[in-house]
Amino acid sequence: MRQKTRKKHRKGKRIVLSLLVLILTISAVRFAVNQTAFQDFLHFNTDVASMEHGWNLILVNWEYKIPKDWKVELTELSNGQSVDSRIYPDLQQMFDDMRAQEVYPVVASGYRTAKKQRELMDDKVDSFLAQGYSRSEAKSEAKKWVADVGYSEHQTGLAVDINADGVNSSGQQVYAWLADNAWKYGFILRYPEDKTEITKTDYEPWHYRYVGAESAAKIYESGLCLEEYIGMMN
């Protein structure tokens, strides 16, 4: 009797262990599937930005990442900021013309390294955390102002944040001039106030992106943002 009881007991243990292994296996598979789905939902499309329409019309945003083979040759400005050398002549001409009209701009931010972009994102997240946001909320809010590493136009060297010098001009003077004239030099207002649902970035009157004179004129005249313009070309 005791031997039969022991056998039944061992058999019961094996069944319990088998069931436990089965449950754990199913849970692991479900977790892996859910993690993948969650990552796909949370993370931006991993598509790489295309240069199909030329280097000046590369679309880098929340959805399209800078290609790994993207190379930028930089020209350093007088204040230590740098930009892609291909946009420098038009940028310089625009600034010269602004100053001739007694509007005094400065490039507050030009080309950024991945390290610098990461630091800016971390700082912005910390600022929202300090305001009482949860970490996930802080990250979400920060993305409205700062792009993730690899998804920032500043890393291409084609984008510039243009502000006033703070002495001879005000920010509003500079932003107003740029809104009316930057397209003539190949630059567009990258994040318009009425396009935030498309760009996924809040209105930034200081952020300008070089696309070349021809495309800048078309974008300015049409009222499209870069995402819409590229979409129309495709």
Rank of each mutant, 00 (worst) to 15 (best):
D84I: 00
G80E: 02
A37P: 00
L17V: 10
V48N: 05
R14A: 09
V29G: 08
L22A: 15
M94K: 05
S27G: 14
S82L: 04
F95Y: 08
L20H: 09
V29Q: 06
H43E: 15
Q39H: 10
R30I: 14
N34G: 10
A49R: 00
T75H: 06
I15T: 11
T25F: 14
L22Y: 06
F41Q: 13
S50K: 09
Q92R: 13
I66V: 11
Q81T: 04
S18T: 12
T46D: 15
T36N: 15
Q39R: 15
P89Q: 05
H43K: 15
I23Q: 11
S85T: 07
K71E: 12
L42G: 08
E76H: 04
R14T: 06
K65V: 01
W70T: 05
A37K: 15
S85V: 07
N45K: 10
V60G: 01
S50W: 06
F41T: 11
L17T: 08
Y64S: 08
L74Y: 02
T36F: 11
V83K: 00
I66C: 02
G80R: 06
L42C: 09
L91W: 02
W62V: 09
V33Q: 12
D69N: 15
S50P: 02
V21L: 13
G80C: 07
K71I: 06
P67E: 07
D90V: 03
T25S: 14
V72Q: 04
I58L: 03
D69F: 06
F44R: 13
Y64N: 12
R30K: 15
Y88Q: 08
K13A: 10
A49L: 05
P67G: 07
I58D: 00
Q35E: 12
L74V: 02
T75V: 07
